[in-house]
Design a protein around this nucleic acid. Sequence first.
DNA 1: CGCGGAGTTGATGATCTTCAAACATGGTGG
DNA 2: CCACCATGTTTGAAGATCATCAACTCCGCG
Lengths: 221, 221
Amino acid sequence: MLVRINTAPRMSIDGHLAALAGEGMCYSEFRYRRGLEIFGEGEEPEYVYQIVSGAVRTYKLLPDGRRQINAFHLAGDMFGFENEAIHRFTAEAIVETHAHLMRRSSILEAVRNGGAGTKDLIKFVTQNLAHAESHMLLLGRKTSLERVTAFLLEMDERLHHPDVMILPMSRRDIADYLGLTLETVSRALSILRDEGLLRFDGNTQRRLELVDRDALAKIDA
Amino acid sequence: MLVRINTAPRMSIDGHLAALAGEGMCYSEFRYRRGLEIFGEGEEPEYVYQIVSGAVRTYKLLPDGRRQINAFHLAGDMFGFENEAIHRFTAEAIVETHAHLMRRSSILEAVRNGGAGTKDLIKFVTQNLAHAESHMLLLGRKTSLERVTAFLLEMDERLHHPDVMILPMSRRDIADYLGLTLETVSRALSILRDEGLLRFDGNTQRRLELVDRDALAKIDA
DNA sequence: CGCGGAGTTGATGATCTTCAAACATGGTGG
DNA sequence: CCACCATGTTTGAAGATCATCAACTCCGCG
């Protein structure tokens, strides 16, 4: 079902959670079923999360229901850190997801004490910011074909260039990430398939193979 | 050309730069003429900047010249901090701008030493991230009228609700911030003016007055 | 005065959305 | 095991929004 990366136990140096609060900090492990809300926009942040397996979407809603997905989080990714007293967006499990949780207060305290994890926290937030900036360029200035191509290449990279890419998210999720409709996403994928740049694996639409990454990279301006 | 104006030992307590690196840190003051590039995307970051007066745009470009402005920075705002070894975007003075500069290395060192400014740095990056997330919602899901209205309200707030708002940036800048064309921005402003929600002050197009902020807030979904 | 930059407005057109229909898929229970 | 239903996906046709192309105005400034 889901592509998995190694699940870093708590001692691993570059495991994010462990790095943040230092060794010896404990965390709990939770399991979220497909579609379940992990936390909601406006709620008080209690935990910071690291995904062991599964996938999570974080998004904002307009009052009339229009949705913008900020980011997808895959195995190994951390999310949910807040500096202020409320969550700025909602997080939901896209598929069955296992995550490690660490109390936010532990991390804030570690920062207050000048803990070693401070640098990692700054790095984490900065990486999120860098991603957001690139995504603003996509949302503000790229065509639908460029957006879908960029999405495929982003996922390809984050899944470490697998032969067959297994997408946990629906066309609607992709559309809400790219600022398009699901129909436009579907059409763009069909174009790329017809041009021979990608193949659908079997008869399922969520398993696909990037046949010509160079050509895709040329489309993504 | 850069003009070095003076060097001062320290600035006000609530100034961001001072908070970041602690007391006793030195900064220089520079002046940038209208249109001048302050730093370019991909360059090595040397300084962190705080605007004394003027306005700055930060943006990314696609190879064919399409531009996305991430943010406008006004008097009091800080910008240019990088955690990694290169600038992720370009910064230009929109109008004649005075800024305080502090060496990036000083700030990084302060963080390494567990300086008091670490918390402020995290706060600074997090605020940028929060802005970027809101802007992604705008770029991905709002209509042109909603975008322009949101822009006006954002500027109104950041300029502390002046009677007459003086915009330093051109219609093209606004368009590249909102993911629109300058014509669409102009049309949206005309609509808001015709509906009586704003007035142009005199016969210049950059001075305008928000007549009905509540109605504007209702348009901005 | 004339020139250039900035802005507005109009006509036309392309891209993307909306609406709609058909088909596929995967899970559930008889 | 298969029928069945909800959900997800593709594709087509029509329509809306925004972009493009173009003309014109308004200042500011030499």
